[in-house]
Every structure is written in structure tokens, then in C-alpha cells.
Computed example of a mutant assay.
Amino acid sequence: MFFEIHKDIPREGPGNNESTRRAFHMLTDLTVHPHVLDVGCGPGMQTKELANLTDGTITALDRHAPFLQKLDAWIAENGLTKKIKTVQGDMFDLPFEEQSMDLIWSEGAIYIIGFERGLRGWRKLLKPRGYLVLVVSELTWLKEERPSEIEAFWMENYPGIKSAVANEGIAEHAGYQLINHFTLPEAGWWEYYRPLEQRVEMLREQFPGQVNMLDALDETQREIELYKKYSAYYGYTFYILQRQDRE
């Protein structure tokens, strides 16, 4: 049901090209021709933007073949087969050699493996002084005190949500230095939610008697409505992190 609900929308999570560019331009000493790994690329909106930003090569990984097929079609249409390749794989067991990546990028996907586990597990793939750039998908609390309704919702649906300070501490203990961070603007959420809301309405008409699907659609719509009410209290955060090695 998740993939049916999220089918044919441009993004699989909140984000926008402006924020992708902003994060990339914070990488002040990235090599000229980096090897970039985009983990959980989905249909590849940020992958396409990264192709505009770097002279390096990009490996885009996702477990869902239909996402990769759409991205492959776009790559072929734009003559980028030498610059971008797709790999169907699992972020829990990335099929790449240690210290083979200059940059790991993950927008809206690390929640699948968990922030701390992702940082620790992916670190070995980075070359020394390589970058790991990601959007924290366990979300980030933006205020210390929150209304009980939104706190209860995220404690039920993603209890790993933490503050920026807590996430920065996790990153440091996992072997990274924080270079910078910023909160995704609300416009980035609506680039995701508006097409999703339209799809929810379409699927209600398509599956009028399927209780499980209707329940999933109700939950999706509830998430959107809660963001309308409580966007000041939580958001996605870009954390720009650099691998640190003790001497």
C-alpha cells in the first residue's frame, strides 16, 4: 500500500532543489570529480539535481525497482549513462567497497535504517575526510515544548525523533564532525505533500471498498493535516557531516 500511495509522485519525502543546492554548496573542499552515492534515491529528484551540481559520477541506490526504472529512463533520455548509474540494493547491506565514496547523500531515507545505525554503518564507505550529507528522516524537533497531539503522533509513528542538539551528539559519537546544518523550509514539505494529497484523493475513488487501503489513506491525510497545524514544532534537517579519523 505504501508504494501504491507513493506511486507516480516526484518525491518520496519532503525536499526541494533549492535545499539540495544549498547543502551541496556547503561542501567547501570536496574533490573536483567525486564519486557520489545517493542512498534511498527513490525516483531520483535529488539525483538529477546532483548531476547538475557535480562533475563527478553518481551511483543511485534504491530497493524499489519501479523507481529505478523511471530514473534509468530519464538518464538515457538526457545522455547521462556515463555519469549516473542505478543499483537495486538494500541500505542495510550496501554492496560497495570500503573507502570507495567521496560523498554519501541521503534525502528522506535514513529513517528506514535509523539515524545512528546509518551513520555508523555507512561511515566505512567514505574515504578519509569524505563527506556524508543527509536529511534526517526521523525528523527533528524544532522546539523543546510541543503540543501533546503532535508529540503523541510522532511517538507512535517514529519514536526516534530527537532535537538537533541530540542528533549532533549522535553524529559526533559515530565519528563525524558537524560542518553545518539547516532546516528544510516549509516549501520543501509542500513539494512532497501537494502531489501526495492529490494521489490520496484519486485512490479513494479507485479503491472505495478496500478498508485497509482507506485506513492507510486516512493516516496519510492525517499526517498532512498535522503538518498544517504544527509545522513550527518539527521539520527535516540537513546535517552536513565530515568523517573524522583519530590519529
Results as ranks from 00 to 15, higher is better:
1 M>Y: 06
3 F>I: 01
4 E>W: 00
9 I>G: 13
13 G>K: 00
19 S>C: 12
24 F>N: 04
24 F>Q: 04
25 H>F: 09
30 L>K: 12
31 T>F: 01
33 H>I: 03
34 P>L: 10
36 V>K: 01
36 V>L: 13
37 L>M: 10
37 L>S: 08
39 V>I: 13
45 M>K: 01
46 Q>T: 11
47 T>S: 07
47 T>L: 02
49 E>L: 00
50 L>P: 12
51 A>M: 08
59 T>P: 02
61 L>N: 02
64 H>S: 00
70 K>C: 15
72 D>P: 01
74 W>G: 10
74 W>C: 12
77 E>Y: 00
82 K>C: 12
82 K>P: 00
87 V>S: 03
87 V>F: 06
90 D>N: 15
90 D>L: 12
90 D>M: 08
91 M>S: 09
96 F>E: 09
96 F>N: 09
97 E>A: 15
100 S>W: 09
103 L>P: 02
104 I>C: 03
112 I>F: 10
113 I>F: 03
116 E>T: 12
123 R>E: 08
123 R>N: 06
124 K>I: 10
124 K>A: 11
124 K>C: 08
126 L>Q: 04
130 G>E: 04
135 V>S: 13
138 E>N: 12
138 E>F: 00
138 E>D: 15
141 W>T: 05
142 L>F: 09
146 R>N: 10
146 R>C: 11
147 P>N: 06
148 S>Q: 13
150 I>S: 05
153 F>L: 03
159 P>K: 10
161 I>H: 04
162 K>D: 15
164 A>M: 07
166 A>Q: 14
167 N>A: 06
167 N>R: 09
168 E>I: 06
172 E>W: 00
174 A>T: 06
180 N>G: 12
183 T>I: 15
189 W>E: 00
189 W>R: 00
193 Y>K: 02
194 R>C: 08
197 E>T: 02
198 Q>A: 15
200 V>P: 00
214 L>E: 12
217 L>P: 01
218 D>L: 07
218 D>R: 13
221 Q>H: 12
222 R>L: 14
223 E>C: 08
226 L>N: 11
230 Y>N: 09
230 Y>E: 14
230 Y>P: 13
231 S>W: 06
233 Y>R: 07
234 Y>I: 02
238 F>Q: 08
238 F>R: 01
241 L>G: 02
243 R>M: 14
244 Q>I: 14
